[in-house]
Nucleic acid binder design. Structure first.
Lengths: 141, 141
DNA sequence: CTGTCTGCAAACCATTTGCAATCGT
DNA sequence: ACGATTGCAAATGGTTTGCAGACAG
């Protein structure tokens, strides 16, 4: 999606188009480095030397909420542990925050879990995460 | 793996078998709740009222390092963002911490990404994470 | 104008660190 | 006895919050 389109989308949803937001959009556009908040901050501060981290957090949150960017679970510092170390997936319910196991064998073949692109990489572990709403929480609505 | 076996394994690798470690092992054994450090702490403090969070962190780290438990990326509070919101996977290099994109189409069919187990669940997003060592870092060794 | 957004500073809070006392081997 | 481990307290650092002033619409 073009920057202009994204801006129009945000505007149509009632967001104000501030220069800081535009700057961050430009920084993110076609960025393949999976930047963190700090990375974005370091880029945008060159253009707006007074911008604060709080604003970057705020903008990232808006963009994520509107589906313009996606948070990825890179963090090593996660908070949950699984005593089952066999490869399997997880479903995380956005409402109750419960974590459900999803066995690989029940998935329509994840194959040998080694995509061509990673041919020369050493794959040490694989994690598959579904997010959404679990049956119980869905039924309660 | 039985508790006794796990203890033997740890011992054989030079770790000391403290009652705190045994208690945490018991708590984790067959635990399907994907507990966080806080959860483990709340359980173990009933047995050892003086145990500290630092010890729980320490024990969890040991167990993870020895492959007895696995950290999972549940955290909503992640640190990296992707401007590409189309479903695709990521490879995270443990050495340089770079994040590489892995396209779904290049993977040997992840299928419609809806396992039978989740039939009644609302799947809103899917994340696939490979961890290991990337080509560049491997070559530098 | 009006209400949203920014930027600053302080608060938060999960995790980490330093260290003396304790305990497993 | 020796060195690893614990538990306490303090430090850390990323993220969040509160709020007054700035600014987009």
């Amino acid at each position: 999606m073009e920057i202009e389109e994204t801006i129009a989308l945000l505007k149509s949803r009632g967001y104000r188009i501030t220069p800081q937001r535009v700057a961050i959009l430009r920084i993110l556009k076609d960025n393949t480095n999976h930047p963190g908040v700090e990375d974005v901050f370091r880029s945008v501060i060159k253009i707006y030397p007074n911008i604060s981290m709080a604003t970057v957090y705020n903008v990232m949150e808006v963009l994520e909420r509107e589906g313009i960017i996606k948070e990825i679970a890179v963090s090593n510092v996660s908070r949950r542990y699984d005593p089952d170390v066999n490869p399997h997936g997880h479903f995380i319910c956005r409402v109750c925050e419960k974590v459900f196991d999803v066995s690989f064998s029940n998935m329509r073949s994840l194959g040998k879990y080694s995509p061509r692109e990673l041919d020369e990489f050493v794959i040490e572990s694989l994690e598959l995460i579904y997010r959404g709403v679990c049956k119980d929480c869905k039924d309660k609505t």
